[in-house]
Design a protein around this nucleic acid. Structure first.
Length: 273
DNA sequence: ACACGACCCTGTTCGC
DNA sequence: TGCGAACAGGGTCGTG
């Protein structure tokens, strides 16, 4: 579920609602989702004030003075302000704020992780250790993509999915980005032209920004911090559209599905070369 | 360096 | 209708 736009949507909602509030209590129902010591995790934040929020790639955190409550949502993780009495199934952690608001972490598949991190040295975090430059960071340029890709013979789609190179692009948006950039997903990364690298970086920004504006993509269960679904699924041009016609202007192609690295890739064989 | 598989889990969908 | 297999948007680790 959660790629950069979904995580950013959640971060913004949480930011609006809980920054400047103190944490009253943290209840951990599933200690194994915590990286490090769960007891220390809870007590480290209780009584402290959320000063801000942050994000890099698909990872977000609540910032306190110099430490952060860092969250990676994995495949099925959700983080939102809960209202109502009963917590849903698979609620692994509940953060109660001073105004009584409850931020719940729900994750059926339990691939997600939480960690207490040092905001002064993010790279000591196990979650953030392998997370590179954020895909919306201006420091990620076409020239940098071209340089880094030039030493990798893997397919460009797998390159984009590797979070150490550029962080935040997941399986849905990788297909969308390459379609808009008119680059075939199987092309070796080290065979990109400068023009193609430029188109990929441009498309990345365009797609991710539009998806954030739409509140993310909700295939089955993504919601923002207030529990509302996103709408970007209506703007997807290739993902999960196998057999449908390509929407690129003047293109008569039909969307195909292939498998790369065990994961679905969608493309138009006509306009992506 | 890289391809590949196993693994971490549950929920949903699909085919028989 | 029931049942098991296959699959799903994440990532890590070990092997060859």
């Amino acid at each position: 579920m959660p790629e950069l736009p979904e995580v950013e949507t959640i971060r913004r909602g949480l930011h609006e609602r809980i920054v400047h509030q103190h944490v009253r209590e943290i209840l951990i129902h599933r200690p194994e989702i915590i990286v490090g010591c769960p007891d220390e995790f809870a007590t480290a934040f209780e009584g402290n004030r959320v000063t801000s929020t942050g994000r890099r790639g698909k990872v977000l955190w609540l910032a306190f003075a110099r430490q952060g409550l860092c969250v990676h949502l994995g495949m099925s993780g959700r983080l939102y302000l809960h209202n109502g009495s009963d917590h849903p199934p698979h609620t692994h952690l509940v953060v109660t704020m001073e105004d009584g608001a409850e931020v719940v972490y729900v994750d059926p598949r339990r691939f997600g992780r939480l960690e207490r991190i040092d905001l002064l040295d993010l790279n000591t975090s196990r979650i953030l250790r392998n997370v590179g430059t954020d895909a919306l960071d201006p420091a990620w340029t076409a020239q940098r993509l071209l340089e880094e890709a030039s030493v990798h013979s893997i397919a460009i789609k797998e390159f984009l999915l590797d979070q150490t190179h550029v962080a935040g692009v997941g399986n849905i948006y990788a297909s969308e980005i390459l379609h808009r950039a008119r680059v075939a997903p199987h092309r070796p990364a080290n065979r990109l032209s400068a023009a193609e690298a430029k188109r990929i970086v441009h498309s990345t920004r365009e797609v991710l920004r539009a998806a954030i504006a739409a509140g993310g993509t909700t295939i089955s269960d993504h919601t923002d911090a207030l529990g509302r679904p996103g709408t970007y699924q209506h703007h997807l041009r290739v993902y999960d559209r196998e057999g449908e016609s390509c929407t690129a202007s003047g293109c008569a192609g039909e969307i195909e599905r292939t498998v790369q690295g065990g994961r679905s890739t969608y493309l138009c064989p006509v306009c992506q070369q």
